[in-house]
């Protein structure tokens, strides 16, 4: 595996499976009484967040701490960034302190990639603009795999604000790598430009997709948050109309197969893209996604950092 995790496309199928398999072991550790492993003792991880985040930042922090790394949080507010320091200077300043990994979130697509050109340590993309969020895709795949088993040949539907969603892009890349079929559903105004070149099907009709008329029976549906903060208006007439056409409301829930899973990367706008009946029902794995976030990030930090003194050997298949 390379030193950085910038895109879900960086991972081969074998590497992705290895990370998910290791996360399985980390997940088991989460339910132990003593949740502390010595593996990353002496390593320092800095969470460099130029954008707000609760679950990603805290789960990276918990993941690092449970593996005994020292974790420091730096957010744009209250740091020199608010005094006008450039991205490059901030990254170099933090890296100069001798950290082993930077976990970066930034509002601009490609900002994290840019940082890797300036610093020597490992860099993990925790979300850059509307580009990618690879650990979210990993945890979605992990959570889903726990619920429905191997994802090869399964059909995942991703619904919502695809234009502004880094989660959707990373998920399409990773799910394709893992052999799953993906259908993207959104109103035409929220369908990303160039989606035809992605490895997935697309549809504007959520009802038809959920009933299996578009791309076959549905194994899981992922509802994306309508990102009000990225909306400069004009994508859809009203929130009410969006909820009626693309929200997972109780009526639509009946179209979804009984054994299908419902995912949401959070935070949820209840009543807009997802109804409480869907979010809190048996088929929802929203809370498991949060729990999986820590396990998956432990696994990512382990694979990136535990052996960095020399290039990691080729990954082998995990024996039982």
């Amino acid at each position: 595996m390379s030193r950085n995790l910038l895109s879900a496309a960086d991972l081969s199928a074998a590497e992705a499976q290895t990370i998910l398999d290791s996360a399985e072991q980390m997940y088991a550790i989460q339910s132990r009484q003593v949740k502390k492993l010595p593996t990353l003792r002496g390593r320092t991880v800095v969470n460099l967040f130029f954008e707000d985040s609760t679950r990603t930042r805290s789960s990276f922090e918990i993941a690092g701490k449970w593996l005994s790394a020292d974790v420091i949080n730096i957010s744009a507010k209250g740091s020199s960034v608010s005094k006008g320091e450039s991205l490059r200077d901030t990254a170099l300043t933090v890296a100069a302190m001798g950290v082993d990994a930077l976990v970066v979130r930034h509002a601009t697509s490609g900002a994290v990639q840019r940082i890797t050109e300036w610093v020597d340590c490992s860099v993990v993309n925790a979300g850059d603009g509307t580009h990618e969020h690879p650990t979210q895709a990993l945890l979605d795949a992990f959570s889903l795999r726990r619920r429905i088993g191997d994802l090869a040949g399964r059909h995942v539907v991703i619904v919502g604000d695809l234009t502004h969603s880094r989660v959707a892009r990373s998920n399409v890349l990773l799910l394709h790598t893992l052999g799953a079929d993906v259908t993207l559903v959104a109103p035409p105004t929220l369908m990303p430009a160039g989606v035809a070149s992605w490895n997935c099907a697309t549809s504007w009709d959520l009802d038809a997709t959920l009933s299996g008329e578009v791309n076959g029976a549905v194994d899981a549906v992922m509802m994306l948050r309508v990102q009000r903060e990225r909306m400069s208006g004009g994508y859809f007439p009203t929130e009410r109309e969006y909820a009626i056409s693309y929200g997972l409301n109780p009526r639509r829930l009946k179209l979804l197969p009984k054994d299908a899973s419902i995912l949401h990367p959070g935070p949820m706008n209840r009543g807009l893209e997802i109804s409480s009946a869907a979010a809190d029902g048996d088929r929802s794995i929203v809370l498991d996604q949060v729990k999986s976030g820590v396990a998956v990030r432990m696994s990512v930090l382990y694979h990136l950092l535990a052996g960095v003194d020399q290039p990691a050997p080729a990954l082998e298949e995990v024996s039982p």
Partner: peptide, 8 residues
């Protein structure tokens, strides 16, 4: 650190 990361 010397032998590299291995799958768990």
């Amino acid at each position: 650190r010397t032998q590299g990361v291995r799958p768990l």
